[in-house]
Design a protein around this nucleic acid. Sequence first.
DNA 1: TTTCGCTATGTAAACGTTTACATTATATGG
DNA 2: CCATATAATGTAAACGTTTACATAGCGAAA
Lengths: 340, 340
Amino acid sequence: MKVTIKDVAERANVSIATVSRVFNKSGSVTDETRHRVLTIARDLRYTPNASARSLSTSKTDTVGLLLPDLYGEFFSEVIRGADQTVQQHHHHLLVSSSHNNRSEIEAALRVMRGRVDGLVIMSPHIDAATLNANLPKSLPVVLLNCYVRDSSFDSLNIDNFGGANQMVKHLIQHHHARIAIIKGTEQNYDAEERLSGYRTAVREANLETSPDLEFSGDFTEEAGFEAAKKILHLQNRPTAIFASNDSMAIGAISALRESGVHVPEEMAVAGFDDIPISRFMKPGLSSVHVPISNLGVLAMEHLFAAVTEKDNYIKKQDIITTELVVRESCGIHETNNNDD
Amino acid sequence: MKVTIKDVAERANVSIATVSRVFNKSGSVTDETRHRVLTIARDLRYTPNASARSLSTSKTDTVGLLLPDLYGEFFSEVIRGADQTVQQHHHHLLVSSSHNNRSEIEAALRVMRGRVDGLVIMSPHIDAATLNANLPKSLPVVLLNCYVRDSSFDSLNIDNFGGANQMVKHLIQHHHARIAIIKGTEQNYDAEERLSGYRTAVREANLETSPDLEFSGDFTEEAGFEAAKKILHLQNRPTAIFASNDSMAIGAISALRESGVHVPEEMAVAGFDDIPISRFMKPGLSSVHVPISNLGVLAMEHLFAAVTEKDNYIKKQDIITTELVVRESCGIHETNNNDD
DNA sequence: TTTCGCTATGTAAACGTTTACATTATATGG
DNA sequence: CCATATAATGTAAACGTTTACATAGCGAAA
C-alpha cells in the first residue's frame, strides 16, 4: 500500500542510499540516475516518511506557536504573520492555545518537546524557571510578550508602558483631567505595564490617580461593555476612558452609545493594539498601534535565526515600539485625512 | 544528553519493552514495577520520542487544518473551535494557510501527508480530483465549506444559499425594492452561493436583478469600502446593500458614513457570518449568523470520528443552518432588546 | 505430582530514513 | 601504463520506539 524509499530504489535499480541522496540533494548522483529516480518516484507517488526522517536526523521541520488564547483579531493576526514566515522557511506550524494556568502551560511545553525544532511562546504568565524545567536547553525559544527578564532567553516585547503612557499623555494634553482606565486581565504582564503607563502619565501631570478610576477587565468586548456601564454611574464622571485594548474599547463605546452618551463629545475613548477593525469603527477608534502581524513575523524570524545559527547565535531582547494613532473616538482628531 | 527509553530501562532494571508498556498502559506490569519506572522517568525527565513512536505505529497524534486565508475574525474563530476539540482528543494541531491557487494547495496537501492522522480542509476552490490525486485514500478528511459534491468525502457546508436568500427576502419584505450586493471573491464557492441566494430572492419577488446592482469584492473591509463608494455613485441609488460577509459590510458602512449617508435611514446594510464584533458595531450589524467556532468543533469531531472508527465509519454530508440576526443596520430592528 | 493457564517480563524484529564508510569505475598526471 | 585522486554508488548501522513472540514463574486443577 504505502510506498517507501525501498520501492523506489528497486524500481530504479539503485540502492536506497542513492534515492536518499537524490531527495536530499546531498552527495553526488549522475544526472541520468537522478532523473530516473525522480521519474519513478513521481509515478509511484512517493513521499519520504516524515517520522523516519525526523528520527534519523533529529529535525522535524516544524516549529511551535504557543498562545494564551485565541479570541479576537489580535491572535489571528499573530498567527497569520507566523504562518507566513514559517512557510517561507519551508517549515510547518504547530499551534496550541488556551493555556491559562501553569500546569496547562507545562503540559503544552512538554508535549511540544521533540515535535518541534523551535518554539515561539506567547504567554503573559510564565516564568524562567518553568521554562527551564520543561524545555531542553538545546531547543531554540523566542518569548513573545512574556514577562521574563532573563537574558538567557530571546524575547520580543511590545512597549506596553510607553504606548499607554503616550496615549494618556495625549489625552491630558488635550485637557482631559479625569481619565478612567479599563484594565486588562489580572496578573497579565501586558495589562500591568499598560496600567503602569497610565498611572505614570496621570501622576506626572499632577492629576488624580485613584482606584475609583481604575476598572477591571479581561480584554474582551463584554468586559469593556460592563466597565463602561460602571463608569457612567460614577458621581464625578470622567471625560475620557483609556481601555487596555481595542476589544474593550469597542465594548465600552457600545455601552456608552446604548446609554445615549456621545463619543467623543461627552466621553473620549481610546484603545490599545490598533486591530484592523479599529479604523472601520464609528467613530474611528483612537489607539496605540502595535504591528501585530509583524509580531508573528519577527518572532519567527528570530526563531529561525536561532535554529539556523545554533551555537553562535546571540540572544536578543527586543522591544517593539508602538505608535499613537489618533482617530475620532478620542475627540482630538486633526482632520488631515491621513487615516485612509 | 537526550534521554531515551533505554536509559530509563537500565536505571529501572527492566527491559525497554516494560518501560514502553508502562507508558502505553498496554500489556501487564506490576504496580511496583510501574511505579519504579515512572519515578525514574520523571527524575530523568524522559519524554518518549514522538518521531520514533510515529514511525513504529504510523500514528502522529496530529491533525491538520488547511485554511485558504487567515484574515479577520472568521478564521481565528474556526481555529479556536478546532484547537479546543483537538486538545480534548489529546492531539496536536498543524495549521497551514494561504493557499489561493491550485498548486499551492497541492503542495500543502502533499506536505501534510504523513504528518497527520487526519485533515480538515477549508478551501473554497478545490475539486475532488485534486484531493484524490494528492492524498492517500486511507487518510481521513473532512471538507469544510468546499464545493465538492462527492459522497466519498465527509463534508460540512454552511447554508450559504439559504442564509443569503433569507436575509434578502427579509429586506424585500420590508419594502426595499432596489438592493445591491457586494460579492465575495471570484470563483469562491461561498461567494457564488450567497450571490445565488440573493439573486433568487430578488427574482422571486419580481424585482430588478441587474449586473449594475452587483459589485465585486473579496471579503475584506477595503473591498466593502470601495464597493460602497461605487454604489453611491449609481444614478438610481439602491436603498439597501447586502454584503457577502461582515467585514465588507463594515467597510461599506464606514464608506457610507464618510460620505454622510446615514445607516440605516438612507441606506440599509446587512452582512453575513455574524462575526463577534458585529454586535458591537454602531449601528449593530444585521447579519446571517453562522456558528463559526462551532464549525471548527464540528469539523474536528467528524474527523476524530472518522479517525477512530476507521473502516466502519459512514461518511456524512452535513449542512450547517444559519440564522437571521436582525440588528439596527438594516433598519428593521424591532426594539425588543434581545440583542444583549 | 503433573499439567495447564495466567501474569509479568524479556528478546528481537520491524518501522523508513540518513549517513559514515567501503567499494568500484573513471579520469588525470607523471 | 601505473598510481592516484575523484565521482558514483552500495552496505550497513543507527535513530527510539512498539509489539509479536518467547520464556519464566507460579498458583490451581486434576
